[in-house]
């Protein structure tokens, strides 16, 4: 995006909107897995923006969610 980003992000879920279609787990398998009822469990760990692969797959998941229940939240990574 031109702008160099430091810091990181976490993936956040609105459980009210989510209907358990499970697309997110397919699109971002590193950050999301499904529980026994098919609802996503997020790792909740901050990911640095420098991890391009994770960033890309997360963006796919956010766009691919049919209920728009996922959101990327910026956080400061404290080292």
């Amino acid at each position: 995006m031109g702008v160099r980003r430091t810091g990181g992000f976490v993936l956040a879920l609105n459980p009210v909107l989510c209907d358990g279609f499970g697309h997110c787990a397919e699109l971002a398998p590193d950050l999301v897995h499904l529980d026994e009822w098919g609802y996503p469990v997020l790792t909740g760990e901050p990911v640095p923006f420098s991890n391009l692969a994770a960033r890309e797959s997360t963006r796919y998941a956010v766009r691919g969610c049919p209920r728009q229940a996922l959101r990327i939240e910026r956080v400061n990574l404290s080292q």
Partner: peptide
């Protein structure tokens, strides 16, 4: 029954 883990988890 808005959130999956509550709607399905509690009956489980």
């Amino acid at each position: 029954r808005q959130c999956g883990p509550c709607a399905f988890g509690l009956p489980a």
